[in-house]
């Protein structure tokens, strides 16, 4: 416990000197302009582009801290505690959601997607008839064409007698 009376006596000169600092003030003209400047700054702040979510969150937290939590060391403790609570709530929520709809493994094997099938489907209504179309269709998906849309058959039963493997111009 401090001896207040003794301290006051001891520090009276210092306290008198400190009291003179009350007089250190700008002129009244400065204070007449404070309100105007405050309004100007408020207007400037209102037209500034909105910051990102994180920036606004941090700014909000700092604002709350400066208003409510005077000790800087406690601010971090509060922030950590807050994050821990959020994490706990988040984990709890995900756990509850997970227990209601547990993930299951499907035993069905999926057929690989056959790109050629789509082309063959597109060709099917037109009844592949010409030789060129048959060859094109077969090159896309011969199995599909053989099974469903086009009956398997030879394009040509035998080579014609006039067939010439060489080409002449």
């Amino acid at each position: 416990m401090f001896n207040t009376k003794r301290n006051e006596e001891d520090f009276s000169q210092i306290q008198k000197l400190l009291a003179t600092k009350r007089m250190e003030m700008p002129s009244q003209s400065y204070f007449n302009g404070v309100l105007h400047e405050f309004h100007q700054r408020q207007r400037a702040m209102s037209v500034q582009p909105r910051n990102s979510f994180i920036t606004r969150l941090v700014a909000q937290w700092e604002s709350i801290c400066e208003t409510l939590i005077p000790r800087p060391s406690l601010r971090y403790a509060y922030a950590v505690a807050g994050l821990a609570v959020l994490l706990a709530v988040g984990l709890n929520e995900s756990w509850n959601a997970g227990s209601q709809e547990a993930p299951t493994l499907s035993l069905q094997t999926e057929q690989p997607e056959n790109k050629g099938f789509a082309f063959a489907e597109a060709l099917a209504p037109q009844q592949v008839s010409t030789v060129d179309q048959q060859i094109d269709a077969a090159s896309i998906d011969p199995v599909r064409l053989d099974n469903k849309h086009v009956m398997p058959h030879y394009v040509m039963a035998q080579a014609p007698t006039s067939y010439d493997t060489t080409m002449a111009f």
């Binding site: 250190e24 003030m25 204070f31 404070v34 309100l35 405050f38």
Partner: peptide, 14 residues
């Protein structure tokens, strides 16, 4: 603001 500007100024300035 007008009421407290001088006192708040004094705190900050010192």
């Amino acid at each position: 603001l007008i009421r407290y500007q001088q006192r708040v100024y004094g705190v900050i300035h010192n």
